[in-house]
Design a protein around this nucleic acid. Structure first.
Lengths: 336, 336
DNA sequence: TTTATTTACGAAACCGTTTTCGTAAATAAT
DNA sequence: ATTATTTACGAAAACGGTTTCGTAAATAAA
């Protein structure tokens, strides 16, 4: 019934707790005969060491924290799989903390981490995050923290990103080459680096092809689905409306398609669409969706791998470990 | 640089550690004046209590474990949101553990929980799980465990499910009423209760409408995407092939659509499709997908709420708390 | 004034491990 | 036979909190 602990095990075996502990760490100090005896009764009594006692004594938690905006997003859920695959191999647990795109939540989560709950952090900042004091606090406290996907430019640490500028450029150029001259850009945040870089890519592509950017066609979407729907609708109801859309985030696919349907705009005839998305169903949408597909699993895996390098060596310099893994433009029927 | 602990705080303030601790628990033993003083310098020095030390002494972790097969699945990611919403309110953390549909993984995770890592467990069993010794071990050890969605029938505890039998029945009946006389069923596991109940519903609907069930049209899909694709293809290549498909799991949507495309079968003209799915994009698929949509968020939230009831009262009888929350059949173009 | 009670704090045990250090007994070296 | 070394284990001090219990001082009651 009650959890058995190392002391109870020691009693049962007429050994000291230190001997038991050493057995589980395969210490050379303990004879093979004793090791066997301990292991056997431990298995019989179903002894499992208390991780918090170990954490306390060893001053490490064997947990890594993953701070992300949402889990109901295919990029992040795939990235989690990547992270988990390496954490498991290292005997670590993954504590997933959701900010729900709120800066306040993000701050509170990192604050909690100061207490030693995790040994390292992988993070994708919230949409609202525009400064990084809370992050620098954590890092200067000695916790290794690595960004993936959504980074804070001004924090000195490893950043695993994809080529956001190029992706924004490629998506836009693709639409231009398909004959679009007015192209809308749906971003998610002024401050967010990925949104900014994708926007820059978009703007550069327009400039390179001597197309004029129109502020009315660049909008920022929010957490409020209704608001996004209305904003997209407004863009597509202008008399001089865009004939192409670059949506910089997966969540916007559905509202874009819905608005087009309701306004009786045909994709791709009337409007061509490219969306940053990792959705499995992109290929079977109506019409199938041209996407910028990010290497989600790989980004998570890479970020975690680098984090463990930092956990294994002390004074490991993370700044030099940044990596850019390219995304792929997958052309489908929504743009051609 | 280094983490400040309660002793350092006590030193700084010329107080004892017990006093500091009591301040953080708002003990009546401490004067308001002292409380203020402590709170102020705690904030100034950025003191955050070590959760593991508290866990150790208090013999509770303030963590709940969520054991699920995958996170890259809209049902589970929505359920996580539901769980997290109530955990956060209660000041708990959520430890998400993925089985990847492996029984071995599931057993290891529950074994680890014996060590006291979590105070309670919410669980959706893996596809491979066919017996429940590992679960009963945990429960008889005193850990409250609640199932959601995928349950073990023979474990005595609360089970938050949806009306799988009715949903299977409704999906099948719907196809029958749309004129299908041969209907295939794509399951995921022989042992899994949800798969079994949905299958039963399917079989009962066939029987009620005096249609013969054909074993060749009932298949079990696996973790291997290629295998599933081939199996679905085989079904749709029979000369007496089905004109309707009930897919009992979200992941099968894409292969069904892909196979139909490659075999030049039109949905819904040649084959009508209903899928158990919570995908946001169901409405914009080609054609839009008729779904059985589960109350994912609500199921997670309900399961967590009941778990906390058990955590708050001792000797709370979970068996009586089972709940069935109905799913909805959302008819779209893939079936009409 | 004397006694009872309340207020406000501190000392110390405890939670379950890990780890250092000490040491008998066994073995090896001289 | 004596000394040195190795082997195999135990005692006890951490780790950072929480909680019980004890107690001086302040206040209230008699």
């Amino acid at each position: 019934m009650k959890n058995i602990n190392i002391k109870a095990l020691a009693c049962e075996l007429n050994l000291s707790v230190s001997t038991i502990s050493k057995v589980f760490h395969d210490s050379y100090e303990i004879s093979d005969h004793t090791k066997q005896r301990v292991l056997e009764t431990a298995a019989r009594l179903n002894y499992v060491p208390n991780p918090y006692a170990s954490s306390l004594r060893g001053r490490k938690s064997k947990n890594i924290g993953v701070v992300i905006p949402e889990v109901a997003d295919s990029f992040f859920s795939l990235a989690i799989n990547g992270i988990e695959s390496v954490a498991k191999e290292k005997g670590y647990h993954v504590l997933i903390c959701l900010t729900h795109e709120s800066f306040e939540n993000e701050k509170n989560i990192l604050k909690e981490f100061q207490g030693g709950r995790v040994d390292g952090v992988l993070m994708s900042v919230s949409r609202e995050t525009s400064h990084s004091d809370h992050i620098n606090d954590l890092i200067s406290n000695g916790l290794p923290l690595i960004f993936f996907d959504r980074v804070c430019e001004d924090v000195q640490t490893a950043k695993i990103t994809t080529d956001d500028f190029e992706s924004g450029y490629n998506a836009t150029e693709h639409l231009i080459l398909q004959g679009c001259s007015k192209i809308a850009f749906l971003g998610i945040s002024k401050s967010l680096s990925i949104s900014g870089k994708r926007l820059e890519g978009y703007l550069n592509a327009l400039a390179d092809y001597e197309l004029k950017a129109d502020k009315k066609n660049i909008i920022l979407c929010t957490n409020d689905a209704k608001h996004n729907y209305t904003a997209i609708k407004k863009i597509l109801q202008q008399k001089n409306k865009p004939t192409g859309i670059v949506a910089s985030v997966e969540k916007l696919t559905t509202p874009v398609y819905k608005v087009c349907e309701m306004l009786k705009l045909k994709i791709p005839k009337d409007v061509k669409v490219v969306c940053f998305s990792n959705l499995d169903t992109a290929a079977i949408l109506n019409p199938s969706l041209t996407t910028i597909t990010q290497p989600a699993f790989e980004m998570g895996k890479t970020a975690a791998t680098i984090l463990f390098k930092a956990l294994e060596k002390t004074n490991f310099n993370l700044t030099g470990e940044s990596l850019v893994i390219p995304s792929a433009l997958v052309v489908r029927n929504s743009s051609s």
